[in-house]
């Protein structure tokens, strides 16, 4: 495998990526790859991602479409014979990539970003406005188009009493929650940036 070998990349991951140091335990057995429900959709399954990190292949790892394809089923974590929380490493890598502006799966990154923004703003998730906000990120016209496509489902939910009509209000302790989250961002691995 020819390419730019960068020995500092593994250290970068250990020091800055949440749960990144856990990959030191990986023995390349491949159970994580075999257990993933979306393995056939991944350019590199987790096992290969971990090897690429050790080999210093920064570009392949950070641009991999696999690291944002996790459904969070935890099967890899419960099966790993070395006790590696594979899912946490994959989420950590995805988050690190987004922080660095490397976003191979824009939809999931945008949806997750809006999800988090809503938690930060009001403390809870409003199921009816979240998809709308996400759709409108594509721009007004495609946003309206996606919303119309989703409308039949929304109408069905409404007709079957499964839509909360009042807008979700801020939790009482939102100011304190935001202070906590600001602090957690700052104190997290690799700092706020």
């Amino acid at each position: 495998m020819a390419g730019n070998y960068d020995p500092s990349f593994a250290k970068e991951v250990f020091d800055n990526v949440d749960s990144g140091e856990e990959i030191k335990m990986c023995m390349q057995c491949g159970i994580c790859a075999g257990s993933c429900p979306l393995r056939h959709e991944m350019d590199y399954p987790p096992r290969q991602i971990f090897t690429l990190i050790r080999a210093g292949r920064r570009d392949e790892v950070m641009n991999s479409k696999a690291i944002k394809l996790c459904t969070s089923c935890y099967r890899c974590k419960v099966r790993c014979p070395r006790g590696i929380p594979v899912i946490d490493v994959m989420h950590g890598l995805a988050h690190y990539g987004i922080k660095k502006g490397i976003i191979p799966r824009k939809g999931t990154a945008a949806f997750g970003g809006e999800f988090w923004k809503m938690i930060y703003n009001i403390g809870r998730i409003d199921e009816k406005t979240l998809p709308l906000k996400y759709n409108l990120l594509e721009g007004l016209v495609p946003g309206i188009k996606s919303t119309i496509e989703m409308a039949p489902m929304g109408i069905q939910m409404f007709l079957h009493h499964r839509m909360k009509l009042l807008p979700e209000r801020k939790i009482k302790g939102i100011k304190e929650l935001r202070k906590m989250l600001d602090k957690a961002k700052e104190m997290g691995k690799g700092g706020a940036n």
């Binding site: 949440d18 988050h95 987004i98 945008a110 949806f111 938690i119 957690a184 997290g188």
Partner: peptide, 10 residues
């Protein structure tokens, strides 16, 4: 899906 916007500690 929050990992897209936040770190583990948050």
């Amino acid at each position: 899906i929050s990992y897209a916007g936040a770190n583990e500690l948050s």
